[in-house]
Amino acid sequence: MATIGLDKLFYAKITEDKDGNETYATPVQLAKAMTADLSVELAEATLYADDGASEIVKEFKSGTLSLGVDDLGGSVASDLTGAVIDSNGVVISTAEDGGDPVAVGFRAKKSNGKYRYFWLYRVKFGIPATALATKGDSITFNTPTIEGTIMRRNKVDSKGKHPWKAEVTEGDVLDPDVITNWYKTVYEPYFGASAPV
């Protein structure tokens, strides 16, 4: 079903243990969302046998997330890109900047009024693009765009796999607390017989 809206753009900082397994901080709002373009790159291989394709493997390799937002505040820019805020509150970007990966969550409104919720578990952002223009006869809004690379997370789920995305549509979830708590914590995959306690 088609989506007709996008909102509630959040991010959560990641802390890694000695093995690289992620723990997520409490999510905070990134900015007001305008656009979110998600593309995925797959690693593919085809095994040919008896003059035809015998086996085909397609696995997640990485992805790209391009976010159009209304504005990036200083603390958000610092968290996402590694820029620092000096003693005067000025955001300083350097050639050596490189922000740490974060988890990114958002939701998209569907044409039936329900929402589809997303968490991308590990996104490393680059420097935001900025377009500026002088004011002419009409007003034109110029807003930042920030692009990040989506990676699988290091921490395995209970099935021994490395998730890169969690996605659910409102009404399809068995436990309503999943939606209620979507922005309180980064969603953790659950494969038990009943809802976790």
Rank of each mutant, 00 (worst) to 15 (best):
M1G: 04
M1P: 01
A2H: 07
T3H: 12
T3C: 09
I4H: 10
I4E: 14
L6E: 03
D7L: 09
K8C: 12
L9S: 02
L9A: 02
Y11Q: 04
A12S: 00
K13N: 04
I14A: 01
T15F: 02
D17I: 01
D19R: 10
G20C: 02
G20Q: 06
G20K: 05
G20R: 10
E22W: 01
A25N: 01
P27S: 05
V28P: 04
Q29P: 05
Q29L: 09
L30M: 13
A31S: 15
K32A: 14
A33M: 13
A33D: 10
A36N: 10
D37W: 07
L38R: 12
V40P: 02
E41T: 09
L42S: 07
L42D: 08
A43T: 09
A45Q: 11
A45C: 07
A45E: 13
T46W: 03
T46Y: 03
D50I: 09
D50L: 12
D51P: 06
D51K: 15
D51R: 14
A53E: 13
A53P: 11
E55D: 14
I56E: 14
I56A: 12
V57C: 08
K58H: 14
K58N: 15
K61N: 15
K61V: 10
L65W: 14
S66P: 12
L67M: 13
G68Q: 15
V69D: 11
D70A: 15
G74E: 15
G74K: 15
G74Q: 14
S75V: 15
V76R: 12
D79W: 15
A83D: 11
G89A: 08
S93L: 11
A95T: 10
E96D: 14
D97E: 07
G99C: 04
D100H: 06
P101I: 09
P101E: 08
P101R: 09
G105Y: 04
R107Q: 13
R107D: 05
A108I: 06
N112Y: 07
N112V: 09
G113D: 10
K114G: 02
K114N: 12
Y115L: 12
F118M: 13
L120S: 11
Y121Q: 06
Y121L: 03
K124S: 14
F125K: 05
G126P: 07
P128S: 09
A129W: 06
L132H: 12
A133F: 05
K135E: 03
G136F: 00
D137G: 15
S138G: 09
S138F: 07
I139Q: 11
F141A: 15
P144W: 12
N154I: 10
N154H: 07
K155Y: 01
K155E: 00
V156A: 10
D157I: 00
G160M: 06
K161R: 11
K161N: 08
P163L: 03
A166K: 02
A166F: 01
E170V: 03
G171F: 03
D172P: 01
V173Q: 12
V173P: 03
D175H: 01
P176R: 01
P176I: 05
T180P: 03
T180W: 06
W182E: 00
W182F: 02
E188D: 03
P189H: 00
G192F: 03
G192A: 02
A193F: 01
A195G: 02
P196I: 02
V197S: 07
